[in-house]
């Protein structure tokens, strides 16, 4: 029997009878982070990093049974030791370390390397078996330094402002939105967030795990000339903007790395900014885990596992229900 296995409900530890990020309703669920493809509603008991508690309550429901833990704090269930470790993906995101009789597995969840100044940076954890995501597991995905990207965003806003246009950035309401808001230039005097982002921020700020304030976009927001709006991309996202405003739209996502995906979206500009590890960082993370065996999940798992095998690693794939970074989130 393997310590963790891939079941129809999700990743399962039979020894302790707990699931990690299960996509069907279960008793005990360890949650890596608050994105909806990882934190599903309906489980009887949630366990996660302490910074994810308010996020889960905000997104799933106030009355869920959830317990938060510190990074590195050991949780013993039926002789199996579980602990959460920083994944650097979004606020509260964690890798799950599982240890039983000296055998160690690590489930990365979604992760990125480097410090985004919003969440705790990724820490490599040594293990025997690593279950890694592979959203951007192809060598065409190599991120520029985020500092450069934020400069591009700030420059783009300045250009639009000079043309009396409103800048609209499409970003996922949990994660990307907070990261961008944090790094916007101090020169941008009018910043508005769509209600879903504004409310997420409010929760995070109340719990002391985020510190960048901005105003909520409402139908009454009149003065949008030269303003910057941050919103998830949906058909209703812009309905609160007076039709007379000239707007420029942009998307910040890892998918913007190729010209072809930029063209296919209804946007004026693409910024390459991802909360996932790029090709080089995936390889770095795997190497630093010193794992003998690597199991690749959501993303380009087949290609990535094949490449790892050719490098001489023992690599295989799990089919999971996670979506990775979807531009529509």
């Amino acid at each position: 029997m393997e310590l963790l296995s891939n079941t129809k409900n999700g990743l399962y530890c039979e020894m302790a009878d707990v699931y990690i990020d299960p996509w069907r309703k279960v008793q005990k669920a360890l949650i890596t982070h608050g994105h909806s493809d990882h934190a599903k509603p309906g489980h009887s008991q949630y366990m996660c990093h302490k910074n994810s508690v308010s996020i889960l309550k905000h997104r799933i429901g106030k009355n869920i049974k959830v317990r938060g833990y510190n990074f590195g704090e050991s949780i013993s269930i039926n002789g199996v030791k579980f602990s959460f470790h920083p994944a650097g993906h979004i606020i509260g995101s964690a890798q799950v370390r599982v240890e039983y009789k000296g055998e160690i597995w690590v489930v990365t969840g979604d992760y990125k390397l480097g410090d985004d100044e919003v969440c705790t940076p990724f820490e490599p954890i040594k293990c025997h078996t690593l279950i890694t995501e592979s959203t951007f597991g192809l060598p065409i995905y190599k991120w520029e330094s985020p500092g450069n990207v934020f400069n591009q965003i700030n420059q783009w806003w300045a250009e639009n402002k000079a043309n009396k246009q409103t800048s609209v950035i499409y970003a996922y309401s949990l994660g990307k939105a907070q990261r961008i808001l944090k790094h916007l230039s101090k020169d941008i005097d009018k910043i508005y967030a769509h209600a879903s982002i504004y409310n997420t921020n409010k929760t995070l700020i109340e719990h002391g795990i985020y510190d960048t304030h901005c105003e909520e976009l409402s139908p009454k927001t009149a003065d949008l000339n030269g303003a910057l709006i941050i919103t998830p991309q949906s058909s209703t996202a812009l309905k609160n903007i007076n039709q007379t405003h000239s707007i420029k739209t942009a998307m910040a996502s890892g998918w913007m790395a190729t010209r072809n995906t930029r063209k296919n979206r209804l946007i004026d500009k693409g910024f390459v900014l991802s909360d996932h590890a790029d090709w080089d960082d995936l390889l770095t993370a795997i190497a630093s885990s010193e794992a003998e065996r690597v199991i690749v999940t959501h993303g380009y798992q087949e290609a990535f596992a094949r490449y790892l095998s050719e490098l001489g690693l023992k690599a295989e794939t799990y089919k999971t229900a996670f979506e990775g970074e979807s531009t529509l989130k």
């Binding site: 192809l138 060598p139 065409i140 190599k142 790395a257 190729t258 010209r259 072809n260 380009y300």
Partner: peptide, 16 residues
């Protein structure tokens, strides 16, 4: 694997 995603050969090579 990469080429069909990028669609442009010169760009794929640049990205690699």
């Amino acid at each position: 694997q990469c080429h069909p995603l990028v669609k442009d050969a010169a760009e794929t090579l640049a990205l690699l």
